[in-house]
Design a protein around this nucleic acid. Structure first.
Lengths: 136, 136
DNA sequence: AATTAAATGCAACAATGTTGCGTTTCTGAC
DNA sequence: GTCAGAAACGCAACATTGTTGCATTTAATT
């Protein structure tokens, strides 16, 4: 029952038209959306720089998380509030046909990965690539 | 004892100056190198498009593998011939300070990851982020 | 309604990567 | 060695993604 306005307020972000629109889209989407995806979906006038800054603000506040797709372009997905982001990280599935990015439930323990001496682990990103159900 | 020339020949790639230079650099490097990294390291004249195409050719033939770093830029690393690339994939460590990308020994079984019904898994990419030994 | 910090719009720029096309060069056959 | 064809290269032009600086507007608070 947390409204878009409430989420913005909770993160000390001003309630503006573009932020409402972007956040609504991403909460409803079942996949990660790129800057380009959002530009096309938003039926309003806005500057492209503003959208970049909106996405940065959301990422920094933890509302969204960024996934870099195999082309190197950023996609953003809504971060469910109950995710434990300290020790676990969920994986992402990336369709090699349509490029769709979806969050998977699977999580990974950072402890289980071995790195050379002197290296400090902080986060882990897992991308599973293949063919999604729509393209199958 | 496999020379650079032999590797090129084995993959049906013509033996040119830039290919020799790029491959030598990447075999000796203990980290993934970007187009920019290579441009700076190569002490010869060449067109940037040629370098892009060289890297594509190497990737397609399996000599190199591509890692997309957190900025979305591609880095390339030499693929050791003995890696089993069908069911396993090795992880990469990415330094959040200097951006260095190194291949880890750790491998992952694709079978162990659960995806929704109708999805087909093909490959897995794992990136561990943190601080490398040089920056520590 | 006035204040002010935050957010926006605009212009300009930088980096990465791609495509088309004419020219050069490698390689294998003669 | 040289000839021919295919592969690779160089150049120009372009597309996309992302960033920075600065003036203007707007949201939230008094």
């Amino acid at each position: 029952m947390t409204s878009v306005e409430e989420i913005l307020q909770q993160h000390n972000l001003k309630n503006t038209r573009i932020r409402q629109a972007v956040l609504s889209l991403l909460i409803d989407a079942d996949e990660g959306l790129s800057h380009q995806d959002l530009s096309k979906s938003l039926d309003m006038d806005f500057d492209r720089v503003t959208l970049f800054r909106t996405l940065h603000a959301f990422e920094e506040s933890g509302i969204l998380h960024k996934i870099i797709d195999p082309n190197g372009t950023a996609k953003y997905a809504y971060t469910l509030p109950d995710k434990d982001k300290n020790k676990h990280s969920h994986a992402h599935f990336i369709c090699l046909n349509c490029g769709q990015v979806v969050c998977l439930d699977e999580t990974f323990l950072l402890n289980e990965i071995k790195v050379p001496k002197g290296f400090i682990k902080q986060t882990i990103d897992v991308q599973v690539k293949g063919i999604c159900v729509k393209c199958n």
